[in-house]
Design a protein around this nucleic acid. Sequence first.
DNA 1: TTGATAGTGAACCATGTGGTTCATTGTATG
DNA 2: CATACAATGAACCACATGGTTCACTATCAA
Lengths: 123, 123
Amino acid sequence: MNHMVHYQARLDATFAALADVTRRGMLERLGSSDASITDLAKKFRMTLTGMKKHVSVLEQAGLVTTEKIGRVRTCRLGLRRLEEEAAWIEQHRQLWSARFDALDELVEHLKRKEKTDAKRKRR
Amino acid sequence: MNHMVHYQARLDATFAALADVTRRGMLERLGSSDASITDLAKKFRMTLTGMKKHVSVLEQAGLVTTEKIGRVRTCRLGLRRLEEEAAWIEQHRQLWSARFDALDELVEHLKRKEKTDAKRKRR
DNA sequence: TTGATAGTGAACCATGTGGTTCATTGTATG
DNA sequence: CATACAATGAACCACATGGTTCACTATCAA
């Protein structure tokens, strides 16, 4: 089960990459169009060096790919290597949506309960 | 737009909480049944103190709730406060699935392209 | 060739993280 | 009561993170 290690490591990297407001902002920004490091650095009021680090993190996590042409490195949403990732992506979408569905039901249930049963005390 | 701050802070906390293999394991474990800190500490071969920290992180992120009865603190999947979170949860499920759908299409497209157009060079 | 521009890397800094040990508190139970 | 057990908090440790500055390289344009 050696691939489980990589699997977990990839999850670590992905979630960690998403756990930063700047990087989430970058993903949104890149959702509308590609951008250079300079573009991103300006938009998020940060040094080039700082922005480069964020780009590297997203790249490491496979969420962004980059290509350097001449002196500018262009960043785009990570579409490369997607075939390899498709498996776990789908797996997780299902995992979470299953949980969410259960919660949706529960919330619905609680709503109805609360409405019809408004006076019941907790504990 | 002050609530945006909390919104982002919550995302930070949630993703950071998920960016650890032990904590993801705990969530799976708690998916099947509630557990005490001692239970979890044993399962993940860790000190009580260490496990307590992980529990606190998940609790902070709203992914787990706990209740101390007597001397044992019982941990369960966090269903409390879900109404407040439902909004961003749904939002994000859509955000990601939109992206995934786009990617699925693209991959499909590439597959077909590759099959029918097998000899075309990149660049 | 000479600047200006875009990115990179090394070094540094403050803070956060994942873990430990040790001491302490509170709760069960013989 | 006495002892064991569950959890907690403080203090510490090594290492990661998010940011900076400074020096450097490579490329574009006049």
